[in-house]
């Protein structure tokens, strides 16, 4: 491991504009340093910044960037109003990791593309211009939406998928001041050459995630995640759905897919088709086909398109049935049980 300097920022002012890599929970950054993918000269520890609260804000919630994933998932306001977010968080990683991982770190976590993680492979994301090592390789988990030959990686976060569905906004502070970006557009899509321009400029820091008032969406929100083992695995595909339903008619719909693209994928066409339709299995089947509009395999992963449609339909069906009073024992699992018997 290379030598690096370590400093701890006690105030936001000290962190913003600092040169080096921000260290929050460290669950992703330190791993990347150990495998030689990241080699920062300087670590700026931001884990002690006073950004560790969840506050009411304009009818919604404002979540500090240092709030631990586990704390968001257990927050009564989140559980009551943004249940798909709680379910998404609880379906991610392990209890130990969720206790350490932060909101900001979760948003900024790197792709799990194994070629990105292998410094011996070319990778446009790690080393712009070197090419994409994944293309033509083992691509079972790679993107089916929004990819280019420059990069076919997916963003691995579960949390961000639910955030995108709830229209969350990322608050950023940089040397030049404050700015905001919709979660849905925060992660760049690749361009022909590579992974696209980074989400943050040097020295910029995520301070908060803001969630608007969910209104009636609160009562119909679910997250479903397909994976080979029941826990502690990234999604093959996942979906967050939130619905507002009046007298059996869908008045508002949100649908986002995970594991399919370099960003959480909001399915606008599907949402339009849902709005005004009856909340029936047929509606959901039709909408889920639209969810993958424009999808194409980036390698040996055509099955993911079918799976993404089906997981979208499942999330919609579960959301329509209503958020359960208590989260299932196996959050987000296909086997969560509530729609199986």
């Amino acid at each position: 491991m290379n030598r690096f300097e370590y400093t701890r920022a006690e105030t936001l002012g000290a962190a913003v504009g600092a040169e080096g890599a921000f260290l929050a929970g460290g669950t992703n950054l330190l791993d990347l340093m150990k495998i030689g993918v990241a080699a920062p000269d300087r670590l700026v520890d931001i884990s002690h910044l006073p950004l560790d609260r969840i506050e009411e804000s304009a009818g919604g919630l404002r979540i500090g960037a240092m709030v631990r994933n586990a704390d968001i998932a257990r927050d009564p306001q989140v559980l009551a109003r943004y249940p798909a977010l709680a379910e998404a968080l609880l379906s991610g990683a392990s209890a130990q990791l969720r206790n350490a991982a932060t909101t900001g770190g979760n948003v900024m976590q790197a792709t799990r593309c194994s070629y990105f993680q292998d410094p011996l492979s070319p990778c446009n994301r790690r080393e712009p211009g070197s090419g994409c090592g994944a293309l033509g390789g083992v691509t079972r988990t790679h993107a089916v939406l929004g990819w280019t030959e420059g990069c076919i990686a997916v963003h691995p976060s579960d949390m961000c998928v639910a955030l995108a569905a709830y229209d969350a906004v990322v608050e950023i502070t940089g040397p030049g001041g404050l700015r905001e970006v919709a979660m849905e557009e925060f992660h760049p899509l690749p361009d022909a050459e590579g992974a696209g321009a980074p989400s943050l400029s040097p020295g910029e820091i995520i301070t908060h995630i803001r969630l608007p008032d969910p209104g009636p969406l609160a009562r119909h929100g679910r997250y479903v995640k397909l994976r080979e083992r029941t826990s502690f695995a990234f999604a093959i595909v996942s979906a967050a759905a939130a619905l507002a339903i009046e007298d059996g008619v869908i008045t508002e719909a949100r649908l986002a897919l995970g594991g399919v693209a370099a960003r959480p994928w909001r399915c606008r066409k599907a949402e339009e088709a849902l709005k005004g339709a009856l909340a029936t299995a047929e509606t959901f089947a039709r909408a889920s086909e639209l969810a993958t509009d424009g999808a194409r395999p980036s390698g040996d992963n055509a099955a993911k398109i079918v799976l993404a449609q089906r997981i979208a339909a499942r999330a919609l069906e579960r959301a329509a049935a209503g958020t359960p009073d208590r989260l299932p024992a196996l959050p987000a699992s296909v086997f969560a049980g509530d729609d199986n018997g």
Binding site: L226, R227, E228, R310, I311, R314, V334, F335, N340
Partner: peptide
């Protein structure tokens, strides 16, 4: 085993 017929996940 339980198998989800749409998603193929086995438990």
């Amino acid at each position: 085993v339980l198998v989800d017929p749409d998603l193929g996940q086995v438990r």
